Structures are given as C-alpha cells and as structure tokens.
Amino acid sequence: MHTWPVQDAKARFSEFLEACLVEGPQMVTKRGAEAAVLVPVEQWRRLQAAAQPSLKQLLLSDQARTRTLTPVRGSARRRPVQPL
C-alpha cells in the first residue's frame, strides 16, 4: 500500500485516485500519522457486505433481531433422564 502525505494527495488527487484504481488501497498520512485510506468502490462494497452489525446497531434497530442473536441449535441428542 502506497502512502501519501495529505498535501500530496490534495495537490495530485487525479494521480492519487488513479493509483487507487490500478494498485489498490492508498494510505493518507497527516503530520506523519496514518489518517485515512482510499479504497476502490468494489472493495468497499465487499467490506460493507461482510461486516456484522454492532450490538448498538442491533439494539437500536426497529427490525426483528432474534434471527441474528439466537444461535443455531446443534443436532446432538439429549441424554435420557432417569426418574427419581
């Protein structure tokens, strides 16, 4: 991943964008610290589709959320219970 100082990314944005589309994600630094990453839209959509909702998002959602919170039951058999 190529790293661009923010002033270079701003001054040469077309080149910055083209590098992202050809080479992949590009890192932007601000005062030497990593600040942001520019990624191609296809990769962004894949990342968004694979992301799980956070607990906060689930609790604030107005849609039914039991499907994502309830684990799938296994197919194991229960052991027999002896009468007392």
Rank of each mutant, 00 (worst) to 15 (best):
M1Y: 04
M1A: 15
M1N: 11
W4D: 09
W4S: 06
V6C: 10
D8H: 12
D8Y: 13
A9Q: 02
A9G: 06
A9K: 08
K10P: 00
K10E: 06
K10F: 04
A11W: 02
R12M: 03
R12P: 01
F13W: 11
F13R: 07
F13G: 07
S14Q: 12
E15G: 07
E15A: 13
E15C: 01
E15V: 02
F16P: 03
L17S: 07
L17W: 06
L17Q: 13
E18Y: 05
A19H: 05
C20F: 00
C20H: 01
L21W: 00
L21R: 12
V22W: 01
E23R: 10
E23C: 02
E23H: 11
G24D: 03
G24L: 00
P25E: 15
Q26H: 02
M27K: 13
V28W: 05
V28L: 10
V28Q: 04
T29L: 03
K30C: 02
K30F: 03
R31Q: 06
A33N: 10
E34N: 13
A36P: 02
A36D: 10
A36E: 09
V37A: 14
V37T: 11
V37E: 15
V37W: 09
L38V: 12
L38T: 06
L38G: 06
V39S: 07
P40E: 14
V41N: 14
V41L: 11
E42I: 03
Q43M: 11
Q43Y: 07
Q43T: 14
Q43L: 15
W44D: 05
W44G: 04
R45D: 01
R45C: 01
R46S: 05
R46Q: 11
L47F: 02
L47P: 00
Q48P: 00
Q48G: 01
A49S: 06
A49Q: 11
A49V: 00
A51S: 08
P53K: 15
P53Q: 12
P53S: 13
S54N: 02
L55Q: 13
L55A: 10
L55F: 03
L55E: 06
K56G: 09
K56H: 08
Q57K: 06
Q57A: 12
L58D: 05
L58I: 10
L59D: 02
L59E: 10
L60A: 14
S61G: 12
D62A: 12
Q63V: 07
Q63N: 10
A64Y: 04
A64P: 05
R67Q: 11
R67N: 08
T68K: 05
T68Q: 13
L69Q: 06
L69K: 06
L69F: 03
T70F: 04
T70C: 10
V72H: 10
V72D: 12
V72M: 14
V72G: 09
R73E: 11
G74N: 14
S75F: 03
S75P: 01
A76L: 08
A76E: 10
R77Y: 05
R77E: 07
R77K: 05
R78K: 03
R78A: 12
R78C: 03
R79T: 07
P80G: 15
P80N: 13
V81P: 00
V81H: 02
Q82S: 14
P83A: 14
P83G: 14
L84D: 15
L84S: 14
L84R: 11
L84T: 08
